[in-house]
Amino acid sequence: MELTFKDVNYIYSPGTPFEYRALENFSMHVPSGSFAAVIGHTGSGKSTLIQHINGLLQPTEGTVQVGGFVIEAGKKNKHLRDLREKTGIVFQYPEHQLFEETVEKDIAFGPKNFGVEEAEIEQRVADALEAVQLSEEMKDKSPFDLSGGQMRRVAIAGVLAMKPEVLVLDEPTAGLDPRGQKEMMEMFYRLHEQEGLTTVLVTHSMEDALTYADSVVIMNEGKKFMEGEPLEVFKQKEQLRDVQLDVPEVLAFLEKVENRLGVAIDYRKQSLAELAKDLTSELGRGDGHE
């Protein structure tokens, strides 16, 4: 399913002294089956943005289109339920939404609400557990007896069991240790590929955006600040620094190499080994003058 925002404005508490414009003339397009990253500081409008994708919020002005579903300002949406079944949102710290007695029941909660048949649900629970790499025996345990990392996987399985076509991830690796973060991102990327999902990742990690995303949107104060193919966007270092965002480390490093050594190395997502090779061959050439 493709995803389109067209001139979306969203205002919290309109007409009160607390009125606050969280999205301003925001447009974006994510083609079906592609992976988009959204980056910005806390308060830049990212979480308001993702809540529009499954109709938790309705635009104050403008249109949001998700596949065949259209959410328009000022119009009542009749197909909200169907839309929510097709869009899975993994919120920040999703383990906080667990509540059932067993892992199985919690994963089955979403599909049940959407009226999926018993036999089908059973199959989906098994598939979802496998997708998040938890063993089958887990399903009779209480989710509250699991470790933090396992709880998060159960919560994610609960979203996957809805069989969404659009998957929205809000900082899914927050609070995990480095290994856990890497495993989690690789899991989502595999699912994205296997299931042909349209994925929207909200993140602070430039590295993750560079590694996994097909396109990136940089948000600043409710507006779209930059947009494009990740590597192209991240090469605009000055612009990123204007809004106090980091440049991916490898690009920041190559910039310093260029400034100090006068050697420009083009980064095209090569591996560290290739980068080391580029460095040695460029430096070995040694054009002499300092």
Binding site: P94, H96, N113
Partner: peptide, 16 residues
């Protein structure tokens, strides 16, 4: 804030 967050998460899982 927490209640709002959780109710949104459950609404996304089909709770009305």
């Amino acid at each position: 804030q927490e209640a709002e967050k959780i109710s949104k998460a459950q609404a996304s899982r089909g709770v009305d």
